[in-house]
């Protein structure tokens, strides 16, 4: 396999992995606060359509990104209200959010009249001066659009936030044991709201990556189930942003790798490749399914459990 093909494979993996990374980073923040949000797919779709529509009508892709994040955040706010304030079942609420988001995004796309419209001013790959000259990795990591570059910074920032700041420590405490965190004076409700919304904003950004950089147009169900891969990715990454980067690029590269193997006449069933992300996630789950081990690798102890002050 020549160097150029290897570069092409890795570069595609990074591009295709970027929306997964955005969504997974968001879901990590949310789950670290103890809130399970299965509405990622729905939030991504709403982000994708609203981001695309605003960019399309103003010509400004950055405005599109901002609107997508706000839209994703608003979607997440619904989930936060239901699961934090109303203490509803988070699985049900998240699933409902995905169904709602899927329908809403189709509806909005029609109402706004943007289905399939081309948007010439979308994000395009740029050569980062200096860094793009690095052999192999330069073209893989630094000949990318600006959102991909932003995702590197974001992943590092979220890692730093989680493990090196007081807010991050509080956040992890809230996800681990909200009662204990509460007794230490941490505002459980505020943090859960904040990071559920932050997670939604990143899911919206992931959606905008599809409609403003990768595809780039709005089509109904444009994400084609990748929100679910992002949810699996969070478990695969054991709630750690650093592993999420690796996981996102591995999961993102699988499709392209399958096509490449076909083009080279190497017969590996594509169905096998398609199930790899889930298989890997199940494998990680099996490996870490011992309670103490699960706690050690980072699964928030109170994930999915509503917190009620009166009941502690």
């Amino acid at each position: 396999m020549t160097m150029t093909i290897l570069t092409a494979i890795l570069a595609t993996a990074v591009t295709a992995g970027t929306p997964l990374l955005f969504a997974a980073l968001g879901e990590i923040l949310t789950e670290r606060a103890g809130i399970l949000n299965l509405g990622v797919e729905g939030m991504m779709l709403v982000g994708a359509v609203s981001g695309f529509a605003s960019a399309y009508y103003t010509g400004n892709p950055w405005l599109g990104v901002a609107v997508a994040m706000v839209a994703g955040g608003l979607m997440a706010l619904i989930h936060a209200f239901l699961s934090v304030t109303m203490r509803a079942n988070q699985v049900v609420s998240g699933l409902a959010l995905t169904m709602f988001g899927t329908g809403l995004s189709s509806y909005l796309g029609k109402v706004w009249g943007v289905v399939g419209n081309p948007f010439p001013n979308h994000f395009r790959p740029v050569q980062v001066p200096g860094l793009a000259e690095i052999p192999l990795l330069g073209q893989v990591l630094f000949h990318q659009d600006v959102l991909v570059l932003a995702s590197f910074v974001l992943a590092a920032g979220i890692w730093f936030l989680l493990y090196r700041t007081r807010t991050g420590m509080n956040l992890r405490a809230v996800g681990e044991n909200p009662a204990a965190a509460d007794s230490l004076g941490i505002n459980v409700f505020a943090l859960r709201y904040l990071f559920t919304i932050a997670g939604g904003m990143l899911a919206g950004l992931a959606g905008a990556y599809f409609s403003l950089a990768y595809v780039p147009t709005w089509m109904e169900n444009i994400t084609a189930g990748r929100g679910w891969i992002a949810v699996a990715l969070v478990i695969f990454a054991t709630w750690n942003p650093a592993y999420a980067v690796i996981g996102a690029y591995s999961f993102g590269g699988i499709d392209a790798l399958g096509f490449r193997l076909q083009a080279l006449d190497i017969a590996i069933p594509s169905y096998f490749l398609k199930m790899l992300p889930y298989l890997a996630t199940v494998l990680v789950l099996v490996l870490v399914s011992k309670r103490n081990l699960l706690a050690r690798i980072g699964a928030p102890g109170a994930l999915g459990l509503p917190y009620d002050r009166e009941e502690r």
Partner: peptide, 25 residues
């Protein structure tokens, strides 16, 4: 004519990747 199967009717991302592979070939 070189064929790449996507095993999906609808997936904008996968369809684009398949085309990119063919273009690179």
């Amino acid at each position: 004519v070189k064929v790449v199967w996507t095993n999906t009717w609808f997936d904008p991302t996968a369809e684009k990747q398949a085309a990119q592979v063919l273009l690179e070939e």
